[in-house]
Amino acid sequence: MIPNSLLHELVTLTMQHFFLVGVSMLLAASVAIPLGIILSWRSGWRDVALEVVNVVQTVPSLALFGFLIPVPVLGGIGSHTAIIALVLYALLPMLHNTVTGILNVDVAVRDSATALGMTTGERMWQVELPLAAPTILAGVRIATVTTIGTATIAAAIGAGGLGVFIFRGLATVDSVLLLAGAIPAALMAIAADRGLEWVERALSRY
């Protein structure tokens, strides 16, 4: 029923999609988690930073991809532009959850860590981060699931991925093509959600 060439392309596009999301999540996490840790110490910067990523979040994704095309070095056509946009979107949930996770550590626990003679670093690594880990990971999970969906739009700026089928299906009013893009993307999102939820639960068991 499904032609062999289509199946072949499906595999390639799924791999591309996976790559787009994977790289974006790694980059976003390596920015957002350390930044979130710093912001948990600096209440002044915190509100500004969260406000900025909040505003980024409100830009419609298709528009953000469009805005990035004329930007020199970072922008243009292709997957690197898409990755930058996806990273920007993923920052908010990751940053927000990192800050909240750390700030929500019980004051009595934090105070007794200090009173026992832990340095700021010891307290961060041994007490605050382990206790915040499930919340931080929940942020990563939310970001990943959303990004798998948003990444389909990246096909509009030539980044590839499962969005290619969706855009082609829209242009040719071909529902089989539409579904060939949408269903694998949905399955990928569900798998990521379940997988990360499992890791989250493993972490909260201490």
Partner: peptide
């Protein structure tokens, strides 16, 4: 602080 023991009302044990 490492020379002073400290006990508070809600223990502050690390969960």
């Amino acid at each position: 602080r490492r020379r002073i023991g400290y006990v508070i009302h809600d223990s502050g044990l690390f969960p």
